[in-house]
């Protein structure tokens, strides 16, 4: 093999150093015509390299997206799993039923609750953690960062099982801590008012490491001169944070908000493991309701209509976020 050295172990490192500075000469090289003659092989090679991905993509994404839309206009049920083409076309019936469905409205409300409270808390606490880690900590930085990020990598099912026990009113961790102070712990997951906040607390705990790491990277890219200039102009710590840090973190904020919102809108595992949607549907989310309708009752046409409605909502919210959180300084 040619003497090519792999780019170092650093992911963020760009092209290997021995090739720097030669890029601009490309246009005038004498061998250019020969290469153009080879473009024909590039068409073929390009498609050959794309084939495996496109096959999998076509089968497991493109086709299901279209099929899902078609199914939402049919009465697709259990018998159609073995005989899909026998499903009957029912027009907009599924959608009409959906908008009159009390339980779906409840699920939509619960999901909105989860997103509206959960997303700002996750991003806010992630930002706080990042700012604390970036304010002159030299020792144990990696240690803290790894610790705060740990919940993000662990299985959400395992974490939900652990939290169910943490929140248990008799033998749980919170009950134990409360007992040390002579208090009693409420039964979080059996209370219609406390169950959802408990799930939100768990989601915030599990996910705040993600915005933290991104904000940390963003904070470190803010030039020292900018901060010093604001200090010289007499800005206090709070003003510096509001007028310098937050605006410069805007692109990161946008990305984090979009990703976190999409994730939270599809919340499923937490209620599935911790509450089963109860008590009294107080933690029934749209994904959980869709799962139930589709795979417990095999109302697959109806569940498809639900999936599409949710997709439209997710899309609309994402577009709104892109509009409102866009970098306005440019």
């Amino acid at each position: 093999m040619a003497p090519i050295t792999p780019a170092g172990s650093d992911v963020s490192s760009g092209p290997p150093p021995e090739n720097d500075g030669h890029v601009t000469a490309a246009a005038e090289r004498p061998r250019r015509p020969r290469l153009r003659g080879r473009l024909g092989t590039q068409h073929l090679a390009g498609w050959l390299f794309s084939t495996p991905f496109l096959l999998l993509f076509g089968t497991f994404m493109a086709f299901p997206i279209v099929a899902s839309l078609l199914m939402s206009f049919t009465d697709f049920g259990l018998r159609n799993v073995t005989d899909p083409l026998a499903a009957d076309f029912v027009g907009l019936d599924n959608y009409i039923e959906l908008f009159g469905d009390e339980t779906f409205r409840r699920a939509l409300f619960n999901t909105t609750y989860f997103v509206v409270v959960g997303v700002p808390l996750t991003i806010g606490l992630g930002l706080v953690a990042a700012v604390l880690l970036n304010s002159g900590i030299d020792r144990f930085r990696t240690f803290f960062r790894v610790g705060f990020y740990t919940p993000v990598v662990t299985s959400i099912v395992a974490v939900a099982v652990v939290w169910r026990f943490v929140l248990e009113p008799r033998d749980g961790l919170i009950a134990g801590v409360a007992a040390e102070f002579g208090w009693t712990s409420p039964d979080f997951l059996s209370s219609p008012t406390l169950a959802m906040p408990s799930l939100i607390a768990m989601a915030v705990w599990r996910n705040l490491g993600f915005p933290m790491v991104l904000f940390l990277a963003g904070l470190q890219s803010i030039p020292t001169e900018v901060r010093e200039a604001s200090r010289i102009d007499g800005a206090g710590a709070v003003q510096e944070f509001r007028k310098v840090t937050v605006p410069l973190l805007r692109p990161t904020m946008l990305y984090v908000a979009v990703i976190t919102t999409i994730g939270y809108l599809n919340v499923f595992e937490e209620p599935f493991v911790m509450t089963g949607g109860g008590p009294a549907d107080s933690t029934l989310t749209t994904s959980l309701y869709m799962y139930r309708e589709g795979f417990d009752f095999f109302h697959m046409g109806y569940a498809s209509a639900m999936a599409y409605t949710l997709f439209v909502i997710v899309l609309a919210i994402t577009l709104l976020q892109l509009r409102f959180l866009r970098d306005k300084t440019r």
Partner: peptide, 28 residues
């Protein structure tokens, strides 16, 4: 590589990033 249809293929990849998993569950 410069191949015919490269733009649309990249468009598909970007589009696929946006679609939530739940949408495809039932047909899949």
């Amino acid at each position: 590589l410069n191949f015919f249809g490269k733009g649309p293929v990249f468009g598909l990849v970007l589009g696929a990033l946006m679609v939530p998993m739940n949408l495809m569950l039932i047909p899949k």
